[in-house]
């Protein structure tokens, strides 16, 4: 556990890092970024909290089993989203230009960017973002738990 200044700064910065990561994930089909990058940004937020508060305190807040379950759920959502379009082919983008959820038609060329487009891409971005968040967080937690055992 680090000093009070570091903990206060971590408390202040943690929600902003989370919001920035979810912004990158949600706008993956419009701006630079996507699921992997946004998930990595959220994982840096977890790393900041782990470093500021130490493993012993974090252990009761964030469970390792929760993180690995999050990762599995993300991967399953990704594969299921790919399977829904199996009528045409695996990974078929069945929502694009259909008028349903995320199904608005977009004209060719430069445009300001509309969130309700791109079919299955935002869903896959969200699934992969959840998966990367869980995976990197689980790796961090496992390595921090080993450091604690050596100290004892």
């Amino acid at each position: 556990m680090m000093s009070k200044i570091v903990r206060t700064q971590a408390n202040f910065l943690y929600p902003f890092i989370l919001i920035f990561g979810f912004y990158i994930v949600a706008h993956g089909h419009l701006t630079p970024g996507g699921g992997f990058q946004g998930g990595a940004v959220i994982a840096t937020g977890i790393a900041l909290v782990i470093v500021a508060y130490g493993y012993d305190r974090i252990k009761s807040w964030i469970k390792k089993s929760t993180l690995t379950a999050t990762e599995s759920i993300g991967l399953l959502c990704f594969i299921l989203t790919a399977f829904i379009g199996i009528g045409t082919s695996f990974f078929y983008n069945f929502l694009a230009n259909s008028g349903l959820l995320f199904g608005d038609r977009v004209s060719y060329g430069v445009n300001p960017g509309y969130l309700n487009t791109a079919g299955t891409l935002p869903i896959m971005n969200l699934a992969v973002g959840i998966e990367v968040l869980g995976g990197l967080g689980a790796i961090l937690m496992y390595m921090m738990s080993y450091g604690k055992e050596v100290d004892k």
């Binding site: 089909h29 996507g34 487009t117 791109a118 079919g119 891409l121």
Partner: peptide, 17 residues
């Protein structure tokens, strides 16, 4: 990519579609 997947970001449409 814009007509077929509806995404402005060509890299994302390649990665996920």
């Amino acid at each position: 990519a814009q007509n077929q997947t509806g995404a402005n970001n060509v890299v994302t449409s390649i990665v996920f579609d």
